[in-house]
């Protein structure tokens, strides 16, 4: 019953218009009926962003190694690293994660945030590793988006690494192991 009318609309862009003058009434009482003035304003920033205590994870990716942390006190494994244990507060040690994991869950994004819109459709995956109760968020490659089904859950996956690291978590991605 609902028609997707947007599908046949001409694309709208935001650039192009600068407002210089607007009509102005002689009678100030008419000002409250005026249309709002809407202008386009840019806002952009470069941040000097440190990964701090999580830096070794990114150094690992640059060297083709997938690192997590293990609590020195209670042994809890943080697949996505934390220097301090979320269970007991103890300090953790860096460890290499197994070379193979399984798909815990996934999705196919057909839309996304503006930054990733050009990459759609892409697959997000949460990967589980034997012996750990925490997961790793990553991209899943090599699977056709149209083949999305619950049956993908539990399939074995292997990490792969970008040759030229960008020092982002996307230096890592996963592919099916079999």
């Amino acid at each position: 019953m609902k028609k997707e009318k947007e599908a046949i609309a001409i694309p709208e862009t935001e650039e192009g218009t600068v407002l210089f003058k607007v009509p102005f009434p002689k009678d100030l009482k008419q000002l409250k009926d005026m249309s709002p003035i809407v202008t386009l304003q840019h806002y952009g920033i470069n941040y000097i962003h440190s990964y701090g205590q999580d830096s070794p994870f990114f150094a690992g990716l640059a060297n083709g190694r997938l690192l997590g942390t293990r609590c020195a006190s209670c042994g809890y494994i943080h697949v996505t690293p934390k220097l301090h244990c979320q269970q007991c507060g103890g300090e953790c040690e860096w460890m290499e994660l197994p070379k193979e994991g399984r798909i815990h869950t996934f999705t196919v994004c057909y839309f996304g945030s503006e930054e990733f819109l050009k990459e759609t459709p892409f697959m997000l995956v949460l990967v589980e590793f034997a012996g750990a109760k925490t997961l790793m968020l990553s991209r899943l490659l090599g699977v056709a988006p149209s083949s999305a089904s619950i049956d993908l859950i539990g399939k074995k996956v292997r990490p792969r690494f970008k040759r030229n690291s960008k020092f982002k978590p996307t230096d890592l991605y996963f592919v099916l192991a079999e």
Partner: peptide, 24 residues
């Protein structure tokens, strides 16, 4: 923003992953 957002930060994607697990 260190580990999740740069992978393809999109809340509908996050919730989709949750419900896929709920379905399973």
């Amino acid at each position: 923003v260190n580990f999740d957002y740069p992978v393809g930060g999109f809340y509908t994607g996050y919730y989709a992953m949750m419900v896929v697990r709920h379905m399973k």
